[in-house]
Design a protein around this nucleic acid. Structure first.
Lengths: 206, 206
DNA sequence: GTCTATAGGTTGATAGAC
DNA sequence: GTCTATCAACCTATAGAC
């Protein structure tokens, strides 16, 4: 399992053929176009410009390939909750956070949903996310902390459960992003993100 | 395509073998166990206790079978928004609605997510939901109306966008149900539904 | 409407040379 | 690390009898 990948192997130009990454990219692209159910290693190899055997050399088997794609797809989750959320008007901060959440949900949700179509993959992904402590609760915690701070600073009403309020916003983002993916873009019947944030901001205003 | 099904074909006991329904049930069960990617008509037939050919006789092809399952799985959506939401304390009404939403999301979400794994099925389901005007906006509208009424009755604060507030709660339900399905039940790190409803109730209280 | 039997076509995965 | 060639397994769908 040639997995190191971390200490960038020193090389002048691109790797011999960039096979490993090309395979990953091709898989991700085909995942969007066809969905997992119709994803074949043959087509992955063809699009990546490598042979069938290369796919197996790098990722052992099809499940291994998909696991790699999922882990790469979920990776952005790790970068989200760490941001300090910065300073500024509550409404601006919440807008920025909500936009960030929706932006990466649009990227990772397709991959997460794809994993739901195979019991083995679903468990594999669930285990990975549990080990790495990834999931929606990260966003909830981050936003919850922010709300709590604002309350203590007297800029938001007191007596409101920060985590409870946080789930409301994160959930709205999740719903909006999911709807985009499931129903296509043609459905505009959900309030805009701006509207949602404004509503919560009104509700929380001191 | 023997689809009528509506005027129950008069018969004393059960149909000759109950084939049609048995196939549908078996498909749904296998969908949960294995996921679409590993669903085969062979196994469906075996579990339903019929032959392979029967499956094709009733549902034309595999896609037709899955479409039937999806339409059946999404059906509960239709019954949701029609309920009058009844009378009672806002918090009780919202709790009841939120519980109802989560309950049927737990049922329909697996099916909806399964459809995401095949581009053709995804579009088919999206088209169906669009035609029948199904989707999260139904719940949002229902709750939005309720909030609007409560505002006019002076039982909830004024100046808050009803639809915006509604998305917050529906989104939270959606997030909680999704998390249950994706990460398994072992993850308790999201606030309870009771907590979420209570928070929104506090926020909206006049 | 339900069955048996089978055709026809993919697919995941391996072997072994380079 | 990458290729060509190939297998064995499996799956969807159809034909035709009952």
């Amino acid at each position: 399992m040639p997995e190191p990948d971390l200490p960038a192997p020193k090389r002048r130009g691109r790797p011999p053929a960039g096979g490993r990454e090309a395979i990953l990219d091709a898989t991700l692209a085909l995942l969007h176009e066809r969905g997992v159910a119709r994803l074949t290693t043959r087509e992955v190899a063809e699009r990546a410009g490598v042979s069938d055997a290369s796919v197996y050399y790098h990722y052992v088997d099809k499940a291994g390939l998909l696991r790699a794609v999922f882990e790469a797809g979920v990776a952005p989750l790790r970068t989200l909750s760490l941001a300090g959320l910065g300073e500024g008007e509550p409404r601006e901060v919440m807008t920025a956070l909500a936009e960030a959440i929706e932006r990466f949900l649009d990227l990772t949700l397709p991959v997460i949903m794809a994993a739901q179509s195979d019991a083995e993959l679903r468990e594999s992904l669930a285990a990975y996310m549990q080990e790495e402590d990834l999931g929606p609760h990260r966003g909830v915690q981050a936003l919850g902390r922010f709300i709590s701070e604002q309350q203590q600073a007297g800029r938001m009403r007191d007596g409101i459960d920060p985590a409870g309020a946080a789930v409301l916003l994160v959930g709205a983002c999740f719903l909006r992003s999911s709807q985009r993916q499931i129903m296509g873009k043609g459905t505009r019947s959900l309030p805009s993100l701006e509207n949602v944030v404004a509503t919560l901001d009104d509700l929380l205003a001191a």
